[in-house]
Design a protein around this nucleic acid. Structure first.
Lengths: 258, 258
DNA sequence: CGTTGCGTTGAATAAGGTCAAATAGAGTGG
DNA sequence: CCACTCTATTTGACCTTATTCAACGCAACG
């Protein structure tokens, strides 16, 4: 296993997929005045550190719905922070089966699966028109040697990704279908709240099939469960729009085996 | 979410669970002459860096079978490298269900799930008498600011943990029971090979129930599959001893859906 | 040599998957 | 703006897989 990452070029590096027009420049929105700051890599940094860290954002990239931010196997250069929009990440096995490993929204980081091997392990694509901050990883490494608060945050972010994944394993390995969907909805709700959206009303950006893949269920099962939750008065669903009517009951579903 | 890690004490830190007898000292076996070096944190380091990095190993800890290295919720101080033995890590949900998230053997690192929150997220315990190297995380952070090869390795290790977890999600979310067990056996085999053990003959240190938890199956299902694989001439099982007779056939099981 | 934990096996059951058909929307080009 | 297509979703009927419940065997250990 070889994880030589090309770090001969750092600040000068121009990832191939970036248009020249996206070369380094001052952005209207910097980390300092980004409203996602406290959910993102610069979380908790003091002003001075923040000034330095925002230099890491080498570019912005706008994505259209359906577009891939990176594909499994692509050379790893950068990690990305979601500035707006919604993403899914998935891995494909030898037989072509897709497993969605996560959905990402504002402030969350993408591409960390590429650090270890120098190639992205999964494919990440936009589920709606989106924008990301491009952060060349070599810059992050350089700067985190100097700004220890950044170093700490980077480690924390990586570690929390591991913790998140263990939660998904629990979901996939130990929960029944109903519980999985309830956990999924509550998790989305919680993340929307932190971003200032409604805790009860939201628009799912992913299909039933993508939800199913993430939850280890077939799309028909997901659809049936949505209908069942609706019949039971827990939620209201119409296509991609969901309203949570009784979140306590959803929480209870996660509870005792019933 | 708060991930303040106490780093007021670094080299002086004496984690509470360490006996005074385990205070820093020269070890018979250092990283430099550890045969697991290339599977572990110091992978690929030059001699000079290695000298410095082996200072990180603050102590060794011997573990008896069944003993917990750390429990979910314990304060996070250190990550651990397995020097010998075998471990399982699991998380427990609100309703007391256990999900095994991984099994670890020589050279693999434990406890990285604690970095983000300052508390270990899962419980790791020894499945046989074992020994670990104790590496206080604050030392690792300090040194990885100075030794960039260490920094790179730390990031790589964390990232590979994420990749590994995504593989498990694929297994749990998309594979059928037979495929899961086949994948499990082949994965163990591969890891044993790298450590110089037989690729075909090994002793499972975990129970059927623990295998089942890891694979998202019930222990009876695991037992039946072992029997079936044996009937089909793929393996020979007797209790915890397994011999792989036809690894190509196991590989094929992972293949097309049959 | 009984106890205890772990593993195996069988029969019945339930949960979710598969297959199929109908419907509803969203997007597209005329 | 409307008709048309294509895709996503819903729902039903049936089937398969893995679980549940239960009994029994085995091996280690005091």
């Amino acid at each position: 296993m070889n994880f030589a990452i090309d770090r001969t070029n750092t600040a000068q590096a121009v990832p191939l997929h970036l248009e020249p027009s996206l070369a380094p420049r001052k952005f209207e929105t910097t980390c300092s005045n980004c409203n996602l700051r406290e959910l993102c890599l610069p979380q908790g940094l003091c002003d001075e550190d923040l000034q330095r860290v925002e230099q890491i954002v080498y570019a912005r990239r706008r994505m259209k719905r359906g577009e891939a931010l990176f594909n499994a196997g692509d050379d790893f250069n950068a990690i990305y922070a979601v500035r707006s929009g919604f993403f899914k990440t998935s891995v494909i096995d030898n037989e072509g089966r897709e497993q969605v490993t996560g959905f990402s929204m504002g402030g969350e980081l993408l591409g960390m699966d590429g650090i270890g091997s120098g190639r992205y392990n999964g494919t990440t694509s936009a589920l709606e028109d989106s924008e990301v901050c491009v952060m060349p990883f070599s810059l992050i490494e350089d700067m985190s040697r100097e700004v220890s608060a950044l170093q700490r945050n980077l480690h924390a972010v990586l570690s929390r990704e591991v913790v998140r994944d263990h939660g998904v394993m629990m979901l996939l390995g130990s929960m029944r279908a109903e519980e999985r969907l309830a956990a999924f909805l509550l998790n989305l709700s919680k993340r929307f709240i932190r971003r200032g959206y409604s805790r009860t009303d939201f628009h799912l950006r992913m299909t039933r099939e993508e939800i199913g893949s993430y939850l280890g269920l077939k799309l028909e099962t997901v659809s049936r469960l949505f209908s069942k939750f609706q019949e039971d008065g827990l939620i209201e669903v119409q296509q991609k729009h969901v309203r949570i009517l009784d979140s306590e009951a959803l929480e209870r579903l996660l509870g005792p085996k019933s």
